[in-house]
Amino acid sequence: MTLVFGMLLDALLGEPRWLWSRFVHPAVLMGRLIGWCDQSFNKGASKRLMGAITIAGLCIMAGIFGWIIELAPGYVLDVIVVAILLAQKSLVEHVQAVADALRLSLGDGRRCVAMIVGRDTKDMDQAAVARSATESAAENLSDGVIAPIFWFALAGLPGLLIYKITNTADSMIGYRTPKHAEFGWASAKLDDLLNLIPARLSALMIWAVTSRSQPKAIFDDAPLHRSPNAGWPEAAMAHGLDIALSGPRSYDGEMRDYPFVNSAGERSLTPDHIDQTVAVLWKTWALAFGLALTVAIISRLT
């Protein structure tokens, strides 16, 4: 029942400001540790090897820490850790904030979406802002909700913490920049591996709660995405809402001509489409919660 209560606690409270304004969030601590490793070990001629050793060491530390937490009597601490490391309510709040800001003005929408995406936002039109928010929602549903649930269900707190430290490392050093192309290679590959099943599960669950298209359409479009995993929830969201996602966008002033996912879908996106996306986020969470609760009840009865 740890996962069930952790999901409920996260959905109800999210990341309360009164708490994290007084204490350092575990994700921030992970980021600081990874930043220190980057500064300390991303040097010399064997950067790829040092990067592999670094992520291996971080995963071992995370796994041991999770195991120690599980040794504590009762399951209250476990529930709290699960709730902290899930991101359902915070994801919903960030995505909904873009729709609310976009209804005020295009400039507000651009500033708000810039907080959740890494692409250039200053020249975005309304459709691009809404598309970016929807893409971020789909990808982060997989990375921040379904994948942590999957790895906790499979390997308890050690599995959850190993996933979170890897995902955080990938977001910080996994980019193919001159500085991190070698050092972050192992982190990026491990993150791809750990998200292989959860990304496809996310797509299946999004399809289950929208059911607007045949699964074959998702299978056909997911490989069009530049990411081996993000394309799956994005393709499912695109087909589920009958909208076009991905497509050309600018990074660091350079336009990149990515293909559209569900290219026949609606391209003139509005804040209403973001509202629909948020509804899908909650429906998918409800499906995951129902599955977790069912498994918990069956395990108690057997």
Rank of each mutant, 00 (worst) to 15 (best):
Pro158Met: 02
Val79Ile: 13
Arg226Asp: 15
Leu157His: 12
Pro198Gln: 12
Glu135His: 12
Trp282Ile: 07
Asn167Thr: 11
Ile149Leu: 10
Ser136Thr: 14
Ala264Tyr: 03
Ala101Ser: 15
Thr284Met: 10
Arg32Cys: 07
Phe183Cys: 13
Ala99Gly: 10
Thr294His: 06
Arg212Asp: 13
Met237Glu: 15
His94Trp: 05
Thr277Gly: 02
Lys189Ala: 04
Arg119Cys: 02
Val113Thr: 01
Arg111Gln: 15
Ser299Gly: 10
Arg200Ala: 07
Gly240Thr: 13
Trp232Ile: 05
Phe183Glu: 05
Val261Glu: 12
Ala87Tyr: 03
Ala155Met: 13
Gly156Trp: 14
Ile162Cys: 11
Ala181Ile: 10
Phe289Thr: 07
Phe150Cys: 09
Glu15Lys: 07
Gly231Thr: 05
Thr134Lys: 00
Ser105Ala: 04
Ile165Tyr: 04
Val82Tyr: 06
Phe41Asn: 15
Ala137Tyr: 09
Asp275His: 13
Leu9Asp: 09
Arg17Ala: 10
Ile64Gln: 02
Asp100Pro: 03
Ser246Thr: 09
Ala83Lys: 02
Ile146His: 14
Glu15Pro: 06
Val4Lys: 13
Ser105Cys: 00
Asp78Pro: 02
Ile60Thr: 15
Thr168Gln: 03
Arg103Cys: 08
Asp257Leu: 14
Gly31Val: 01
Gln39Leu: 12
Lys216Met: 12
Gly44Glu: 03
Lys122Asn: 09
Met1Pro: 14
Arg48Val: 09
Ala27Leu: 14
Ala199Ile: 11
Asp170Gln: 15
Leu77Ala: 01
Val98Tyr: 00
Leu154Glu: 08
Cys37Gly: 14
Leu141Cys: 11
Glu266Gln: 14
Thr2Gly: 03
Thr134Arg: 00
Leu12Ser: 13
Thr284Asn: 13
Ile165Gly: 09
Ala137Arg: 01
Gly6Phe: 03
Leu29Cys: 10
Ser171Ile: 05
